[in-house]
């Protein structure tokens, strides 16, 4: 490749010659097609989103206006009666509690695994381990559900009795007997299910920590753990938050696994270990096939609430990340 020097350039053609070196159509057909295609895709996305929102809102309004009880506080789900009464209190409680339990278990463990893969494990072990983690993310949720119902539930009763003996006085860890088909079990199962996604996103972020940040800590005489604390975790913080939100999104919306494990009831138990409760997604899945049209409207209304909650969670995550931007590694 030689760059043309000034002397090579042919003399510019005279006047208004349309065949001059720089003449031509300003817009080429390829550009026009691609512009149209990408603009169309963008618009289509917005239209689909708007259509979903309009549909959900319309059916929800029908349901809520037909509800003879308070939609947000009622501890019952009976849209088929003469006086339809239903509310989302139990579902909101169950969804929030099981997701919080899942996050509390999964995020620390996931960060630990991700750090092990990215900074501790010898290279020969690290890549197969990462591969196994990615594989776990591909397991269908019904498989987790079956495993949870057939293995986890019977094996957790021992742990729950132990909780009852030592923490039973708190009320939230009281346990009688019976199958461990409780929100706590659901939380544990959800934790296992979101572990792979949180781990693999966190690992990617930890692997991207610039060498020079780690060397800065090393050169000050930091041990491996101190390097992680001073350089890796601060750099990866927003990534871990995003990863957690991805996991939380999955936990909030998880349907089949919850429906398989939980024994649903429209009660708010003081103890997390008692069977019963429900979540938005589980409730929709288990009631939808038998619901009449108004029953479907009621379920759609609860789905809309879940939708809004997911949006709020995402918004909150973005806010956290944006607020830390000045201190993030991005501008270094």
């Amino acid at each position: 490749m030689t760059s043309p020097s000034l002397t090579d350039t042919p003399p510019p053609p005279a006047g208004n010659d349309v065949h001059s070196a720089v003449s031509g159509k300003a817009v080429r057909p390829g550009d026009r097609i691609f512009l149209g295609f990408s603009r169309g895709s963008g618009i289509a996305l917005l239209v689909i989103m708007a259509a979903i929102a309009a549909f959900l809102t319309y059916r929800s309004v029908l349901a809520i206006s037909g509800d003879k009880a308070n939609f947000f506080t009622t501890l019952d789900w009976n849209p088929t009666g003469v006086e339809p009464k239903f509310g989302i209190a139990v579902l909101a409680f169950g969804t929030a509690v099981s997701s919080v339990i899942a996050m509390a278990i999964a995020v620390p463990v996931a960060v630990g695994i991700a750090l092990f893969i990215s900074h501790y494990a010898p290279r020969r072990l690290a890549s197969p381990l990462g591969y196994v983690i990615d594989l776990l993310a591909a397991v269908p949720s019904i498989i987790y559900g079956l495993w949870g119902a057939l293995f986890l539930v019977p094996h957790l009763t021992g742990l729950y009795s132990w909780f009852d003996d030592y923490l039973g006085w708190t009320g939230i860890f009281a346990y009688g007997d019976g199958a461990a088909r409780s929100l706590f079990t659901v939380g544990i199962l959800l934790a296992i299910m979101i572990l792979p996604i949180v781990t693999s996103v966190s690992r990617e972020v930890f692997l991207q920590v610039p060498k020079m940040h780690e060397e800065a800590a090393l050169a000050l005489g930091a041990t491996r753990w101190e390097v992680i604390r001073m350089s890796v975790l601060p750099f990866g913080r927003s990534g871990v938050i995003s990863a957690s939100m991805l996991g939380l999104g999955r936990a909030l919306g998880e349907t089949m696994a919850v429906a398989t494990v939980l024994s649903p009831s429209f009660l708010i138990n003081t103890s997390l270990l008692d069977p019963g409760g429900g979540t938005f997604a589980q409730n929709i899945a288990s009631k939808f096939s038998e619901a009449d049209e108004f029953g479907q409207d009621a379920l759609i209304a609860s789905g809309l609430v879940l939708f809004v909650i997911t949006l709020l969670v995402n918004g909150a995550a973005r806010l956290i990340i944006a607020r830390r931007k000045e201190y993030s590694g991005a501008n270094a």
Binding site: P210, H213, E215, P234, S328, A332
Partner: peptide, 8 residues
């Protein structure tokens, strides 16, 4: 390359 801890 200057490498101050970016989050500190």
């Amino acid at each position: 390359r200057p490498n101050p801890f970016p989050t500190m």
